[in-house]
Structures are given as C-alpha cells and as structure tokens.
C-alpha cells in the first residue's frame, strides 16, 4: 500500500469491538463472506485501512496478500480515505450516447479533480461507475445514496450545491 494509506491508517483509531461485530456477528468469520465483510468495513469506515485489513486477515485466517488481492481486484473497494460526499457518475452506454461525457467533464472541471480523486477540502470524492442500471433516465449519477437522472451540466452543478 502507498504511503498516504499507511500514514492515514497510522493515525486512525480502529475500534476492534466494532470490527468484531462486523466480522464475527454479522458474517460468522466465514472466509466465503470476505467480499461482503470488506463491503461492511468500507461502509462503516468509508475506506479500507491497512490496520483493518491486517486485523481481518488474522481474524478469518486469510493471508493479507489474498485480502489485498481481493481489495484491489474489485472496483468498489478503496484503500484511501474518501471525502464526505461520494459522486458516482454513470458511464453506461445509454448515458454515454445521451451526453454523459459532458456531465463527467463538468464535474471534473468544477471540482478540479479527476476520476478517483478527492477535493482538498474533503467535501467530494469523484468516482465513476459502469452502469447503475437507470438507463432510461440517462445521464445518471449517484451522490451518496441519492440517485439523479436526466442530468445536464447545468443541473449537476445545482445538485452538487446541496451537498456540504
């Protein structure tokens, strides 16, 4: 893992009781549930810290190399801390042919960050997703848990204003 991640995880206090709750109670420390455990940890801590992954490795008896492999294979897992709000712009086919690229570029230019990056004030992390499945409403975006359809570059600007 890169320096930024190790630094961050060094600073972060990990609540092991809480991790135990996820790993043991929710998922029975079952190796087969690894992907869902990682999702739950990320849901709780916003990203997967090195400390949490090491702890998980010991807890379920899966080598850290394998856990790291899974965490880097699947697109949803993030090894760096993310911003307070997560923008996911859909890059599915229907969104693409309906002008999704313009929405993507608008966000990129306005926030001055590219795909996968977080703004300096930690307000937004910008991500893309390969099809949210709301193709009839394209271009689409998801901000945190909220879905927005029929976007234009003007509309996305107004929507982003609502998130602090």
């Amino acid at each position: 893992m890169d320096d930024a991640t190790s630094e961050q995880s060094g600073q972060e206090e990990i609540d092991y009781v809480e991790l135990d709750d996820i790993i043991e109670k929710e998922f029975g420390s079952d190796k087969e549930n690894l992907i869902m455990i990682l999702q739950a940890i990320q849901q709780r801590y916003n990203y997967l810290s090195e400390g949490a992954l090491n702890y998980l490795s010991e807890k379920i008896g899966v080598p850290i190399s394998q856990i790291y492999g899974v965490a880097t294979f699947y697109a949803t897992f993030k090894l760096k801390p993310r911003g307070r709000n997560i923008i996911s712009i859909c890059r599915g086919t229907a969104c693409h042919v309906r002008g999704g690229q313009r929405v993507f570029e608008k966000v990129e230019n306005d926030l001055n960050i590219s795909d996968g990056e977080t703004t300096a004030d930690n307000r937004f992390t910008f991500e893309t997703v390969r099809c949210i499945g709301g193709c009839s409403l394209g271009p689409m975006a998801k901000i945190n848990d909220d879905m927005y359809g029929r976007l234009s570059s003007d509309r996305i600007e107004k929507i982003l204003d609502q998130y602090e």
Binding site: G92, T93, A94, H96, R130, C131, G133, C135, S136
Partner: peptide
C-alpha cells in the same frame, strides 16, 4: 450480476 451497460432487465 447484471453488469452489462445499458441493461436493467434483471434489476
């Protein structure tokens, strides 16, 4: 695991 972009049939 309907990952096909442009499809939301299963969903």
């Amino acid at each position: 695991d309907e990952g096909n972009p442009g499809a939301y049939v299963d969903r």
